[in-house]
Amino acid sequence: MKGQAFCLAFFWPETGTATKPSRITAMTETQSKARIQAEAAFGKTQSQFLARNRIISENDAVVQERDEKTMRLRALRMAKEAGGTATPDGMTAAYPAKD
């Protein structure tokens, strides 16, 4: 076919609309069973992977919040044991506690 123009116009409808060729559409509709099973298995594996990542990120957020609260409470306890009064942000106040 060297030097000749090759026309695929017979695939397109004669109405001039830009739709998919019917021959290609028919090929995609009749997929093999193996391909359908492979795509289903891939989709299942991918959804499990995404669900696992979502759970891990939620767990990481809970752990971070717990660690921040533990550090804040530890600072308050240490300030109280040192004899100073503690403020909610974990810093000791400049004045002594009233007894």
Rank of each mutant, 00 (worst) to 15 (best):
K20W: 07
D89L: 06
Q46R: 15
A26Y: 04
P96W: 06
A61W: 06
F42E: 07
D67Q: 12
F49T: 03
P13H: 08
F42I: 06
G16N: 02
Q64K: 15
A41E: 11
Y95F: 13
A18G: 00
T30V: 09
L50I: 07
R35A: 05
V62M: 13
V62H: 14
R54L: 12
A41I: 02
A51T: 07
D67G: 04
R72D: 06
P88S: 13
M78Y: 08
G84P: 01
E81A: 14
Q46L: 15
A93C: 09
V62P: 03
Q46K: 14
E14I: 04
E81N: 09
A51V: 00
L76D: 00
A86I: 07
E68P: 01
I24S: 09
L76H: 03
T87Y: 07
Q31D: 01
R77W: 04
E65L: 06
M1V: 12
M91V: 15
K20P: 05
A93K: 13
K33G: 04
A9F: 03
A93D: 15
G90T: 12
T17K: 09
T25G: 06
M91C: 12
E29L: 12
G90I: 10
Q4A: 09
E58L: 12
F11E: 05
P96F: 05
K98L: 11
G3S: 06
V62C: 08
F42P: 00
A82Q: 09
R54M: 10
T30K: 14
T45K: 13
A86G: 11
K80W: 12
L8Y: 12
K20G: 00
Q31P: 01
P21C: 00
A93M: 08
A75W: 01
A82P: 01
T25H: 03
F49D: 08
M78Q: 15
A75G: 01
A94E: 15
E39K: 05
A61E: 14
A94F: 08
T17V: 01
A82I: 02
A9L: 09
K33Q: 11
D89P: 06
A18I: 03
I56S: 10
R66G: 04
A34W: 00
Q46E: 14
F49M: 11
A61S: 14
A26H: 05
A93R: 13
M91A: 15
E39W: 05
E29D: 10
E14F: 01
E81V: 07
K44M: 04
L76K: 08
G16S: 02
F42S: 07
F11W: 06
R23Y: 10
K80T: 14
D60S: 15
F6D: 01
E58Y: 08
M78C: 08
Y95C: 07
T19A: 04
